[in-house]
């Protein structure tokens, strides 16, 4: 219990500028709103294109030629992601989206996620991706994954890293992640990719059990499911 209490102590300190007279609940809400930019119409940012990309990859025979299809689908997914990022941007709250150079943000979202694929590759290797033989495939995976993860985050936070780090100081980090469609999409993309590795060692000997197809599918589908999960709060 101690560690939890300590963390909540920190949070209080960092948000002490908030009006002390407002009730506790409102305070928490405003903290979350400050830290996590909310999405105006979450249904319109559901990444249906994830499913299309996965379908397309299997349609064009990823099980036969993993590397070239992964590269081609990555290139194809760039304009799709570009449009998707634009849609996200359009659904950001006003105060976040003003004073931002839209075209620069969109282009940088693609490029930064391209660059971040390299450290992501290192992390994938640290978490067990093969090094020697499958390096190229792993790199393509990190390209895909980095686009799934980083480019929506860049748009959501409009390149404000400080704002993003505040997320980790939140008390109720999981509920704030799972109520935000972009954040829950990103988290479940990661989680889906992580869980995607499970079928590989099974002895079914199917072509889709190759490295890294299941991880790729896990990542894309995970993202889709993640954004659906964030809709639950509206059902309530």
């Amino acid at each position: 219990m101690t560690s939890i209490q300590k963390r909540s102590g920190n949070t209080k300190k960092s948000v002490s500028f908030i009006d002390k007279e407002s009730s506790k609940k409102e305070k928490e809400l405003s903290i979350v709103d400050n830290v996590v930019p909310s999405i105006k119409n979450p249904i319109s940012v559901i990444p249906f294109h994830n499913l299309i990309i996965i379908y397309g990859m299997f349609k064009f025979g990823i099980t036969k030629d993993v590397e070239s299809i992964m590269l081609k689908s990555y290139i194809t997914s760039i304009p799709i992601q570009f449009i998707y990022n634009y849609i996200i941007f359009k659904h950001l709250p006003k105060k976040n989206s003003t004073n931002v150079n839209l075209s620069l943000l969109l282009i940088s979202s693609i490029f930064i996620s391209l660059v971040l694929a390299i450290p992501l590759h290192v992390i994938l290797v640290l978490f067990g991706a093969p090094i020697y033989k499958y390096s190229v495939k792993t790199f393509y995976l990190s390209l895909h994954l980095s686009q799934l993860i980083f480019s929506p985050l860049i748009i959501l936070y409009t390149l404000d890293l400080n704002q993003f780090t505040k997320l980790f100081k939140l008390d109720n980090i999981y509920s704030s992640i799972f109520t935000n469609s972009i954040l829950s999409m990103v988290l479940l993309s990661l989680g889906g990719c992580w869980l995607g590795v499970i079928p590989i060692p099974l002895d079914w000997d199917r072509p889709w059990q190759q490295w890294p197809i299941t991880l790729l599918v896990g990542g894309y589908i995970g993202g889709f499911i993640g954004s659906l999960i964030s809709l639950i709060k509206y059902i309530r």
């Binding site: 978490f127 060692p201 099974l202 002895d203």
Partner: peptide, 27 residues
């Protein structure tokens, strides 16, 4: 309960070790 999981148990342990490290790393 799965024969291939027993045969490939090392994969499982790598998976568990990295999950444990990730969990402990964060908390």
């Amino acid at each position: 309960h799965g024969s291939s999981l027993i045969e490939e148990e090392h994969q499982l342990w790598y998976f568990f070790t990295s999950i444990t490290l990730l969990y402990l790393g964060a908390y």
